[in-house]
Each structure stands twice: as C-alpha cells, then as structure tokens.
Design a protein around this nucleic acid. Structure first.
Lengths: 223, 223
DNA sequence: ACCTGAACACCGTTCAAGT
DNA sequence: ACCTGAACACCGTTCAAGT
C-alpha cells in the first residue's frame, strides 16, 4: 500500500471513469477504490472540481503534438483526429471538459499550439480568432452532435426496429434514417458512420477557412 | 392552492432553473417551491429524468416555426437564430438537452421540419443527412464553444486583468485575446461578440452546404 | 386518485482528532 | 505531514400509509 499522491489519485479517477462511467465517480467511491477513507483524498485535490480539472489535463496530455507538414489543413486535421481518438478512449471527457468554467493549463497549451498552426498557415489574427470560435469543441475532436449516440426511436433506448407510427409522425427523419441505414437503424445517430460524419464537417470547415484566407478575408467595418 | 398537474410541475421546474440555475433544481427543492412534499411530484413525472425531458419539450416548443422564404439558407438561418434566442433565455437547456440519451418529441418535430427545409431547398437525401450531422447541436442555436463563457485566465474565474505571465506561456492566445479585446479581456470567450461568432460559423457552414448542393455532391463510393 | 412520512442508500465537505 | 471518524446538510427514490 504505497503512499497516496496527486498523480495516483488522478490516474485512479481516470481509470474509474473509463471503466464505470463518470456518474460512478464520487469522492467516496474513488477513495474506496484506492483503499482509503474519503477524506484522505482532500490532501491531494482541493475538492471534486479540482479533481475533474486534473483528469482533463491527464487526458488532454495524451493528444499527439502537431506533426509539421506542408499544408496547414493537413496538420490541423491530423491533430484533431488524434484528439478525437483520445477522447473516444475517455468518453466521459466530453461532458467534463464542457462543464469546466475555465480551461485547464493542458487545454490552454493545446489551443495555443493550434492557433500557431493557423497563423503559420497564413491566416490573419482576426480570421484565426473567428476560426477558433467556429471550431469550438471540435478542436478537441468532439462531434457536437445533438445526442451522445445510438438508438433514439421512442425513448426506451437501444436498437429497436423502425417504428411505422414514428415514421408517419416524422416522415423526413424516416426518409433520412432509411437512406442512412448502412448498418442498423437510427433516427439521428445510430447506424451512421460517426467517423465519416466527423470528417465531413471538419473538412467542410477547413475548406471554408482556406477559402476565406485565399480571398484575403478581413473583419466587417466596426462603425 | 390548486391541484398539482404535470404542466404546473414543468412550468415551475423551468422557472426554477431559469432563476436559480439547473444545479439548484432538485426534486426536493422543486417540491418545496410548489408547497408540496417531494413524493407528490412522482404522481406527475415518473422520475427526474422524465422531468428534464418535459422541461426540454417546454423550451423547444418556444422556438418559432419556419417562416417560408425564397432562399433555403435564409429560412434555416432565421429559425436557428430564433432557437438561439430561446436557448439564451434558458441557459440551462444546453446541458440538459445534451445529457438526454434520446431526443424528446418536440426535438424530433423540430428536426423533422428542419430536414424539410433542406430537402425543399434542393439538397439530396444523402447531403441533407450529412448536413444534419455537421450542424449538430448548432441546429438548436448552441454555440458549441469549448467553455460556457467568460473570464478564463488562471482558474479563479471572473474578469481579471490580462496576466503577463500567462501571455508569455501562451503567446498565441495572448495575441488573439489582444486583437479581440473589443470590450474586456479574454482568453477564448469573454470579451468576444458571441452573436457575431455564432453567425460567422453558421454562415460558413450554410455557404459550404449550398456550394456542395450546387456542385451536385454525392456520397463517396461504398466499395 | 392524489398526497404524506419515514426510511434507505447515497452525495461533497467541514472539523477535530489521531499518528 | 498525512490519514481517520463522526457529523452536517444535502440527494433521488421506494414503500406503506393516510385521506
């Protein structure tokens, strides 16, 4: 039973969230996992918020650094897809990062380096600024879909057969779902190729940015 | 003291979340607000999850219907900006909608009608499908920014003066923040014109979709 | 049919005490 | 310096009882 320290606490918290979901991560449960009384944790993290901050830094630190390349779009693309792979390994990270009131230092470092790629690619400070906002959480590989995933027909969740009553109430959704039914059925989400959808939107945005850069975009007048 | 019913429960819940924030919305607190014992609520909503579903439907029902116009982009734009105004009145709705495992019926209705606008605008079923994914939660007016808002310098939150040590650690962020400092200072978020950023990204996406439509985009081969 | 009371199994966190 | 025990003020929800 080695001594507790901040790193052991954070690693155990990440492992617990990975295995049992973020909703199972309580100070009490984490302490139990570490064979310690709940209050022992408070010597190493100030409170639960700071624990979550530390978990975010741990995860964001797993993202590959940018691999320099000729095309700024390629560099951005590769790094965001790396972030996406990391975040898919830690599915709880999505909600936790969004719930932070401010960015942690690892996130700031990540954003700073991403800005550098855009700037080095020739985007102006102003354009880069709006680009960073437009990318939003997609910079970290988040899909920004309306719902986390999977079966959505009636509410009971899971993969149900397509409901003809729902198809009548929502005919446009049904048409899309029918066309998208590569594997499985879905309203919006399940049965779709998440990776394809992610890259479709990502490339659309990057191409749009590149077009604006090439056109010499500048902000609308301030008066 | 009139009889309790589902609608009164939902309206009180929305009002409580609007005023005190979603974190204050507990079954016990809501019951207290209604002058009733906690268990009385369970006759009108099955549990807290269903209460949240009902609140989402209430809010999504406030979005204006689409105003038919000549240009599909204009119709989509106007309706999404209406959704955004609604969601800004109920800031808790963002997190609650994203936390639902499946869409509520009001959301399905909204999505169905949005799909109709794209299809009537001449987008193919396949393109509309990917467009819906690419829009994601932006369809409901969400910004999809990395952090909810405001001061982000070091972690203590609030509007601090720009920290020279941080500027040295994150020089690219500092450069952007300096350029963006219309009113107030910010790392990414505070001091920026949220409405401008939202419309910038929205229009970039809509223009991209229109370009693909005009080019007769079709999905890549399946083999 | 609707509301109540007491209870169960949880939370995060403070405070005073131990070693 | 680090860990513990007991307590406080909360949760959502079940179950049996009241009217």
């Amino acid at each position: 039973m080695t001594r507790l320290n901040r790193e052991r606490v954070l690693r155990a918290a990440v492992a617990l969230a990975d295995e049992s979901g973020i909703e199972s991560l309580s100070m009490r449960r984490l302490a139990q996992e570490l064979g310690v009384v709940p209050m022992a944790l408070y010597k190493h993290v100030a409170n639960k918020e700071q624990l979550l901050d530390g978990m975010v830094d741990t995860v964001v630190g797993e993202i590959d650094p940018p691999e320099p390349g000729s095309d700024w779009r390629g560099v951005v693309r590769q790094r965001i897809l790396s972030a996406r792979r990391v975040l898919l390994r830690h599915r709880w990270a999505y909600g936790v990062i969004e719930s932070r009131t401010g960015p942690t230092s690892a996130v700031l470092e990540y954003l700073d380096s991403m800005i550098g790629v855009f700037r080095d690619g020739g985007l102006s400070v102003d354009l880069t600024h709006h680009v960073m906002h437009a990318m939003g959480s997609r910079l970290l590989g988040f899909s920004q879909e309306l719902f986390e995933a999977s079966g959505a027909s009636g509410g009971s969740g899971g993969a149900e057969p397509p409901d003809p009553a729902l198809a009548q109430r929502y005919p446009r959704i049904a048409e899309l779902a029918a066309a998208a039914a590569h594997d499985g059925d879905s309203v919006v989400g399940g049965g779709c190729d998440d990776q394809f959808e992610f890259e479709f939107a990502l490339d659309l945005l990057l191409d749009g940015f590149e077009r604006l850069r090439a056109e010499g975009w500048s902000p609308p007048g301030r008066g």
